[in-house]
Simulated assay, not measured.
Amino acid sequence: MKTTLDELLAFVSVVDCGSISAAAEQLTQTASGVSRALSRLEEKLDVTLLRRTTRRLELTEEGQAFLAEARKILDAVENAEEQMKVRRQKPAGRLRVNAAAPFMLHAVVPLVAGFRAQYPEIQLELHSSDQIIDLLEQRTDVAIRIGPLRDSTLHARPLGSNSLRVLASPAYLKAHGTPKSVTVLSDHSLLGFTQPDSLNQWPLRHALGETFGINPSLSASSGETLRQLALAGVGIVCLADFMTAADRASGELVQVLPRDTIEVRQPIHAVYYRNTALASRITCFLDYLSCHLGDAG
C-alpha cells in the first residue's frame, strides 16, 4: 500500500474542516505539512482529489469517491485501536499454556478458578507435556519450565522457586525402616526418573559430596507417577515441594534424612516468544501466577 494513514487523515480533515489551515490546526500540524501530504496523496493516486481556489476547496468526482473509502479505512483503524485498548483494559482471547503434568496439576490447576473469575474473557487452553516443547510448533503462548533454562531464543520471566526433598510414606518406613544415613539408601527401594539423569542426583550431603546419585529400583518418566508410587508405599522418592505440599501437610509423605538434605531451589520460569509488545492476556496470566505462586510449596 503506497498511501499512508497520515495522508488519508490529512485529506479527510481538509474536507471536514473546509480548509487546509483549519485542518492543520485540528491536526496540530503546519499548513504546509498538510498541503504536502495532500499533494503526495494525489501524486500516488495519479488523480486530482480537490480543486483549490483562492476561496475554497472543492471535491472532484474522484475525490468524492475516494473520500468514502478513506473514511472507511480510518474508521476501521480507529476501531482496531479501540479494540486493542479494550483488550488492555479487559484482556480477552485464547491463551495456550503448556507445563509438565505435575506442575499443571498441583500448581496451575488450583489457580484456574480464581484466574477465570478475574479474567472471564480469556479462554484458557491447558496442555501438559513432560518433554520440552517447541512453542511455535505447538502453537503455545506460554510454557512453564522448572530448572535451569537452556533455550536462549526465548524470553523468560521468573515466577518463583521450589525445594527438593527426599520423601517416603509412613507405610513404607514402617515396613522397611527409616534410613539413618545416606549410605544405607542403597539398601532401599529408590524411585527415580528415566531421564534426565540429573533428576536422579538427590540433594543429600554425604562423605563424597553434596549430591547423591541413585540407581533407581523403579523408574518413571513423570514425577506424578513417582509421587503416586511413593504414596502407595513402593519406595523412597525425591520430588519438588510444589507436588508434595499437601501430602506432607496430611502426613501421607514424610521427609527422609532432613539433616542431610541440602537446600536446593529450582527456579520456575514462564517462557514465551516476544516479537512485539506482550499481549495483555499473557501479561495478566503471568502476573497472576507470579503473585499466587511465589515460592511454590
Rank of each mutant, 00 (worst) to 15 (best):
R40P: 01
R40D: 05
R40Q: 10
E42F: 10
E43H: 07
L45W: 00
L45H: 00
L45F: 00
D46M: 14
V47Y: 01
V47E: 14
T48R: 09
L49F: 03
L49Q: 05
L50T: 05
L50K: 08
L50P: 11
L50I: 08
R51A: 10
R51S: 08
R51D: 12
R52C: 04
R52S: 06
T53V: 06
T53A: 04
T54R: 15
T54L: 13
R55E: 15
R55W: 14
R55T: 05
R55H: 13
R56L: 08
L57S: 04
E58Q: 13
E58R: 15
E58N: 13
L59K: 02
L59P: 09
L59T: 02
T60V: 02
G63D: 06
G63T: 03
G63Q: 03
G63W: 08
Q64C: 08
Q64D: 13
Q64E: 14
Q64G: 14
Q64R: 14
A65Y: 11
F66W: 06
F66P: 00
F66M: 01
L67Q: 06
L67D: 08
L67K: 02
E69S: 04
A70N: 00
R71M: 02
R71V: 10
L74Q: 01
A76W: 00
V77D: 01
E78T: 04
E78N: 03
E78C: 04
E78Q: 07
N79D: 10
A80L: 12
E82R: 10
E82N: 10
Q83G: 05
M84E: 13
M84Q: 05
M84T: 04
K85C: 09
K85A: 15
V86F: 05
V86M: 09
V86L: 08
V86H: 03
R87H: 10
R87P: 05
R88M: 09
Q89H: 08
Q89C: 12
K90V: 15
